[in-house]
């Protein structure tokens, strides 16, 4: 069966290669961006970038000729603004917009033509093979394809143990399949902007980009505050040490990397371990210095992630841990 990407699909998915092909065929050139009738396109693109940077997702759908141009102009504008957090937030908002359309379309998967189109989008853009499950209500992806993506999500519900798994496949509904590739979609858009090479920026774009830069730059800067309290995993480890009980190696690594990361000097960190039943100052000092990157491999070790600590049974999360993925983020707030 041949797969045809129609104009309606291009409006929703302007990042597909077919959209570029459409522009080439229509004979579109850079100089057209200077034309007065392009002002509306440039303004729409600018407002989408501003909304995207503010975390909003635009799901309005114009006719496809306009959508493709708005997408192209947005990319050029973001490139021209050249502030990394703006690019990141814009890419994510575009990804979420596409995610919404993809989910809707995927739910209509009874149409074989549509089903083939989506299988093609997933395979072409993300090398992800999706199949409809035998019961016809869910989709299935290979365990390894799932793990490669889900392991970077923070929500507990994405851990594979909370999924339906059988015979090498993870079963997902339409929303979940699309959520699985959202980050890659954002990366795809991010990379497309990053690799863009614009020989000469049209004046109309330059001017709009300057305005946007002045408006957005202060909004994306933030400063982290100092840690006010230890996270529960660290507190627990310190309590065990305080009771002179044995702490597993992995917990010692967590404790030492954390204390080093919050700026404690090596001497002070070594002191914390002096209660350990098997304490040997020379060995402890070497190991702490190794973690600090001053001995051995000279690589400074980072604090293990919450995910890793959960797997090692070292996580004692409380409500205050909501939304963090590393103990280092505990208690930090945006100023």
């Amino acid at each position: 069966m041949s797969i045809r990407v129609g104009p309606g699909d291009l409006a929703k998915y302007p990042f597909l290669n077919e959209a570029g092909e459409y522009l080439r065929q229509s004979g579109f050139g850079w100089d057209e961006l200077e034309k007065p009738e392009m002002k509306e396109i440039i303004d729409t693109a600018a407002s989408r970038i501003a909304a995207g940077t503010a975390g909003q997702v635009n799901d309005s759908l114009e006719r496809y000729e306009k959508e493709i141009l708005v997408f192209l102009v947005s990319l050029i504008l973001v490139k021209s603004i050249s502030i990394e957090p703006v690019l990141k937030k814009y890419s994510l908002s575009e990804a979420r917009r596409a995610e919404k359309f993809l989910t809707e379309d995927l739910k209509k998967q009874t149409d074989p033509q549509k089903r083939a189109l989506f299988a093609k989008i997933f395979e072409d853009l993300f090398s992800l093979k999706i199949d409809v499950a035998e019961n016809g209500r869910l989709f299935k992806v290979k365990v390894t394809d799932y793990l490669r993506r889900s392991s970077h999500f923070h929500e507990q519900e994405w851990r594979m143990i909370n999924r339906l798994v059988s015979r090498g496949f993870v079963f997902l509904d339409a929303d979940e399949v699309v959520r699985l590739v959202r980050n890659e979609l954002a990366i795809l858009i991010h990379d497309r902007v990053a690799k863009m090479n614009i020989p000469q920026m049209p004046a109309a774009i330059r001017q709009k980009a300057d305005e946007l830069r002045a408006e957005l730059a202060p909004k994306v800067q933030y400063r982290a505050q100092a840690v006010t309290e230890y996270p529960p995993c660290i507190k627990h480890a310190l309590e065990v040490m305080g009771r002179a009980e044995n702490l597993p190696h992995s917990a010692r690594v967590m404790l030492a990397t954390y204390l080093l990361a919050v700026g404690k000097p090596v001497d002070e960190v070594v002191e914390v371990f002096k209660n350990a039943p098997d304490f040997n100052e020379k060995i402890t000092r070497y190991q702490v210095e190794h973690l600090a990157g001053t001995k051995g491999s000279r690589v400074k070790y980072s604090v293990p992630s919450c995910d890793k600590l959960r797997t090692e049974n070292l996580c004692f999360a409380t409500g205050d841990c909501a939304g963090i993925i590393n103990p280092m983020q505990f208690g930090r707030k945006r100023a």
Partner: peptide, 17 residues
């Protein structure tokens, strides 16, 4: 598969989470 992906797999097999 990278280390976080294998860690998720370990969680699955160990019944953690």
């Amino acid at each position: 598969l990278d280390s976080p992906a294998r860690s998720d797999l370990v969680g699955y097999l160990s019944g953690i989470g």
